[in-house]
Amino acid sequence: MNGSPNGGAAPAEPRPTTGGSFLHDTWTVFLREVTPVVREPLGLAFSMVQPLLFLFLFGPLLGGAGGFAGGQSPWQWFVPGILVMLCLFGPMMSGYTLLVELLGGSLERMLVSPLNRTAMLIGRTLKESAVLAVQAVLIVALAVPLGFEPHWLGALAGTALLTVFGVGLGALSFVLAMASQPDGELFYGVTQMLLFPLLLLSGVLLPLDHGPVWLQAAAAVNPVSYVAEAARALFAGSFTEAAVLHGASAAAAVALAGLVLGTRRMRRGAR
């Protein structure tokens, strides 16, 4: 963008007459979102408090619950679930930050700039996935001393799967935030209504195998339970299990739906 200096009294800085490329714009949005995290990394730990509480205060109880196939350590079963939980809470919160920016004026200001509308969504979701990946690594690192033995390549694949899922959830939460204008009540209502049923019906906290039939039926239509199953399989290194395919499909479907809806909503602008 550095053109020739224009003459006269005006400073030599060129006046941009067009916005940047799609990549430039995506990186710009990503940078804007990630800068506060880099400046204050403690905030990252703060958003991990809930999953960490479950890991340390709930996880040890599972040892006594029994019912884990093949004498497996409950950590093998529980840690991937905690990561799924992270995936649910993080992106939902990202919709909240967007909502705050919508209700303030900062998103409007960016909508008046030539920033690419799709880049505005992709940049934000990229930041969510970066944060998720870092948090996943931290959780796994904390769980290993407790007795968690991940298959390392599988763990990488599992994290990738969860990241894709998180991108989708993040984008959907952005759509919800934009639809919640002007007061944001819809956002709070829907997230409150959805978050815990999705979590409880995913078998993340306790296996659903012994639950009543209706509960299992409800879990069968919950994409989160497929993602959780797939994450468990991957973290154990079982790449060829059918659960991996199902979970990957569920995550991809959520990601696709989120990105399509999100891009369409961003293009329409703030209102």
Partner: peptide, 25 residues
């Protein structure tokens, strides 16, 4: 705009520099 255009989580200079990037700098 009528409402404040600066994001709450960003420092003043960071936000201004990012705004330049929004315009292709």
């Amino acid at each position: 705009g009528q409402r404040s255009g600066a994001g709450e989580n960003l420092r003043v200079r960071d936000e201004l520099a990012n705004q330049g990037r929004c315009y292709g700098m």
